[in-house]
Simulated scan of single mutants.
Amino acid sequence: MKAKTADRIAISVIVGIAVLIIAVLASLLGYLLIRGLSHVSWHFLTSAPENIKAGGGIGPQLFNSLFLLVLTMLITIPLGLGAGIYMSEYAKANRLTNFIRLIVEVLSSFPSIVVGLFGFLVFVNLFEMKYSLMAGALALTVFNLPLMVRITEQSLRGVPREQKEAGLALGLSKWKTISSIMLPVAFPTIVTGTILAAGRVFGEAAALLFTAGMSSPRLDFTNWNPFSQTSPLNPMRPAETLAVHIWKINSEGLAPDAPEIAAGASAVLILIVLLFNFGSRWLGRVIYRKFTATK
């Protein structure tokens, strides 16, 4: 077989596989969105299930998902940044460092259900947090922390070595070089990775079944006392998130319009995850252009 013929065949196979994958993803997303968006309305997004006669509404679940996301990222971002900076700039190249990197890689590939069981044993039972948003946030921190560490480490390692050496040559301390030279250059990539990690948190369900719970108290959105059990700002209350709600309403089938509720909630969840992905790319490009002064 001639080289040009083999090259055309290889290109055709690769293009065909790419088109097949895109077609499958587009058809899946199109089916879910077309089926679900017809059931989405402002009332559906803001009302509680018990406030609608047919059993619909995802208002509390949507709020719980956003609140859980904020709690998780408030814990994950400082720990991930600190660990990533240490692994990239301070840790020596030895067996211990290699072992830590191996552990990070293993944790990043753990099934979420295993992380949920760990959270149930440690946070819910051992620390007696019971089913709560905080227990769910800590479990998702364990789930997301390896990704955040790797993103930060790889972003800092991607900074040109000359820039780091120039800062040290000017007499800057190591931390000043990292904070003033390396982090601004790596910041766009870190932001992109952080938003993608946030999207993973928003769509997670398995780990939350064992930590945040599958039910929520009736929330009073006029009560902003974080110590009250009915306050939406109480991090120690059980909370059913949007992803868990989709699983629960499909498995129980108690609501008369369960398929419509699940379809609408799935469409909302997909749109939010897509917004996270597109938003991370857009924000990363904007920040990169700002730091590099490119158009």
Rank of each mutant, 00 (worst) to 15 (best):
I9F: 13
W282I: 12
L20N: 00
T222C: 05
T76K: 08
T294G: 10
G30C: 01
Q163F: 15
I34S: 00
S88T: 07
A293Q: 10
S132N: 04
L147C: 06
K176Q: 15
D257C: 09
S38V: 09
G116E: 02
S65A: 13
P78K: 10
L68K: 07
L145T: 10
K290R: 15
S228G: 05
F99C: 12
T294F: 05
V13S: 08
G30S: 07
I270P: 01
A243R: 03
P60A: 11
V149P: 05
E128D: 13
P184E: 06
A198R: 02
N125A: 04
N94S: 10
P184S: 06
V40C: 01
Y31S: 02
S215R: 05
E89N: 09
M214V: 14
A198M: 15
P49V: 12
S173A: 11
R95W: 14
A48S: 15
T192M: 08
M182C: 12
A166P: 13
I246C: 04
S132C: 03
S215Q: 07
T152S: 07
T194N: 02
V19K: 00
A198Y: 03
G213I: 00
I113H: 05
Y90E: 12
T294L: 14
L28W: 02
L269F: 00
A265T: 10
V159L: 13
R150F: 05
I246D: 02
I178N: 03
F110Q: 05
A10Y: 06
R35I: 00
G82E: 10
A293I: 06
T5P: 02
L283I: 11
I58N: 03
A207D: 10
I11C: 12
S12K: 03
I261K: 02
S41T: 12
L37M: 02
L107W: 08
G16I: 05
I249S: 11
M236T: 11
V24G: 00
N125T: 12
T192A: 15
T241V: 15
F276G: 02
K174G: 11
N94E: 08
S12H: 06
S12R: 07
A135W: 03
L20W: 06
